[in-house]
Amino acid sequence: MTTLSLTDLDETDRAILRALAADATLSAGALGRRLGLSQPAAWRRIKRLQEAGVIKGRRLVLDHERLGFGVTVFLGVKLATKGRVSLEDFERAVTAIPEVQTVEHILGLYDYRLRVVARDISDFERVLRRRIMTLPGVGDVEANVLLSEERRPGPL
């Protein structure tokens, strides 16, 4: 795998990344037309960015609320017994819970930050009590309910 840094990217590479960040479904042909490149040239650049690991993948972003998951909660989780339970055991167990959308190992007051979706507050309480609080090593937990979310483009 080739390694690229931000300084290795030219303005065309950055324009490709901005366009794909806004709409990951764009084809190489559509990107080329938008940026004044041929389809093969756009495809080669995308492939180079993928091979270098700059583009890790493309995601489908779902509207959780329209799918019936009206509540999003961020949980700070502090492990009670770091010595007895390995981080891998906790991570393996928590990622098996379908309502847990992301698991982030963080530095600070808590060991992990989880993004959890639920149908409503009572459904979240069920997930918290029956699934999350029973995980190996869970100690303190702090919940923050998401009120609104705006996506902001990244630094490119």
Rank of each mutant, 00 (worst) to 15 (best):
T134M: 04
L67W: 09
R34G: 12
L87M: 13
G108P: 00
G57M: 09
E91Q: 08
G29T: 12
Y112G: 13
H64V: 07
L49R: 11
L6Q: 11
G76E: 13
V116I: 11
L20K: 14
E11P: 00
I97A: 03
R131F: 04
Q101N: 01
E88A: 13
Y110E: 15
R115T: 15
I97V: 11
K78V: 04
S86V: 07
G29I: 03
A80C: 01
F90N: 11
A96K: 02
T102A: 11
K82F: 02
I16R: 11
T7W: 01
A52H: 06
V71N: 14
E125H: 10
L146T: 06
L107T: 15
T134Q: 05
L31H: 05
E91C: 08
F69R: 06
V138N: 01
R33A: 14
V117D: 10
L107P: 00
E65Y: 02
A118W: 12
D120F: 10
S148R: 00
D63C: 08
H105D: 09
D63Y: 04
D111N: 05
S122C: 00
P155D: 10
A19H: 10
E104Y: 09
A22F: 01
V54A: 11
E91G: 03
V145H: 03
R14M: 06
V141Q: 07
E125Q: 13
R131I: 01
Q101L: 08
A80I: 02
V100N: 05
N144I: 14
L147F: 11
G137M: 08
R119E: 14
R92C: 08
D123E: 08
D23Y: 00
K47N: 10
T25S: 09
L87G: 14
R84H: 09
G29W: 03
L20E: 13
A30L: 12
A118R: 12
K78D: 07
P40F: 03
L49I: 06
R59G: 10
G57C: 10
I46R: 13
V61S: 14
L75S: 10
R58C: 02
T72G: 08
T2C: 09
A80W: 00
L109S: 13
F74S: 10
D123L: 06
R45K: 13
E51G: 05
D10K: 02
R45F: 03
I16V: 14
N144A: 15
R84Q: 11
L60M: 07
I121P: 00
K78R: 14
A22S: 13
T7A: 13
